[in-house]
Write a protein that binds this DNA or RNA. Structure first.
Lengths: 72, 72
DNA sequence: CACACCACGAAGCTAAACTACGAGGTAAGA
DNA sequence: TCTTACCTCGTAGTTTAGCTTCGTGGTGTG
């Protein structure tokens, strides 16, 4: 699943920025629970949401989808 | 807007594959009208949808977001 | 203990993802 | 001029999922 990998990627980027889920949520303007759902791959942000994540994490949107070779 | 650039990117990739909107829609499993909306940046596909677009267009998802320098 | 950080379930609201229908416009070809 | 292919665009509708709130509980650390 794409969502899963996207979530893992976001978690990695967040930790690299030394942010907690709460801080990330506040910076983005969403709930902490949603961050948790996204990182676990249960939910995925909308395209507009992706833009916010990328901005806060200081990467380009395509970086959020940069992981080795998709299984599918 | 991200949607706008995403749509333009998808249109470029579709044409590069010599597909009509109708063919793309059929391959993805959605309506032709939706393809039109997406390419014009009116709507954006969900993350699950992005996966389908990428698969049919034979690129990785991050390629869908590969355009020169976001204005921000 | 207390506190920070996070997973997770259940439930709900609402925006937007996605559809169907119909009209109209452009270009190319017979 | 008519036809056909390809696409835009408006209106309106259905359904999904993006996102929320509340609450519980687990793990680690000072």
């Amino acid at each position: 699943m794409l969502q899963r990998k996207l979530g893992q990627r976001i978690a990695v980027l967040r930790k690299a920025r030394k942010l907690t889920q709460e801080q990330l949520a506040e910076a983005i303007g969403c709930s902490v629970e949603f961050i948790s759902l996204v990182e676990r791959g249960v939910n995925a942000p909308s395209v507009a949401g992706l833009e916010k994540f990328a901005k806060v994490l200081k990467v380009e949107v395509k970086e959020l989808f940069s992981f080795e070779k998709q299984t599918q």
